[in-house]
């Protein structure tokens, strides 16, 4: 069963995504801080990462590079369509930048295409 790393500052976002992925037959690991990411990146493995960057500072790009070095596909999730975020995200190796709110059906198709 594939495992998805989900990152978000909002706990309810994490809860909803975990619930959604469980229904789709996926496991998930939740993170809401850099400390969580450090812990997860050092000890756990995952197949895809979804990074909701809302509320995080520019340090998040460093973590994007780390995930990219692992060879794990990841997506940036942003609250708004922003060319700067698009550019930076793709530069750091993101497969794409998704804008909130996500459509469940589309998210499911994206994840299934990657795992």
């Amino acid at each position: 069963m594939a495992t998805i790393l989900i990152l978000s500052k909002l706990s309810k976002n994490l809860e909803l995504m975990a619930e959604f992925f469980k229904k789709q037959g996926f496991d998930s690991i939740s993170a809401s801080s850099y400390e969580d990411l450090d812990r997860i990146l050092s000890s756990l493995s995952f197949d895809v990462a979804l990074l909701d960057i809302g509320g995080f500072d520019s340090k998040i790009w460093h973590y994007c590079e780390k995930i990219n070095k692992h060879g794990t596909p990841f997506f940036i999730i942003s609250a708004v369509k922003n060319p700067k975020i698009d550019k930076e995200g793709l530069k750091k190796g993101a497969r794409g930048v998704l804008v909130k709110p996500l459509v469940m059906k589309e998210l499911n198709e994206i994840i299934k295409a990657l795992v």
Binding site: S8, L10, S11, K12, N13, L16, M17, F20, D52, G54, I77, A79, K100, P101, L102, V103, M104
Partner: peptide
């Protein structure tokens, strides 16, 4: 409990 969310639309949740 800070139960606000924005990852999915209310319509879907």
């Amino acid at each position: 409990e800070v139960e606000s969310y924005d990852i999915f639309s209310p319509a879907e949740v």
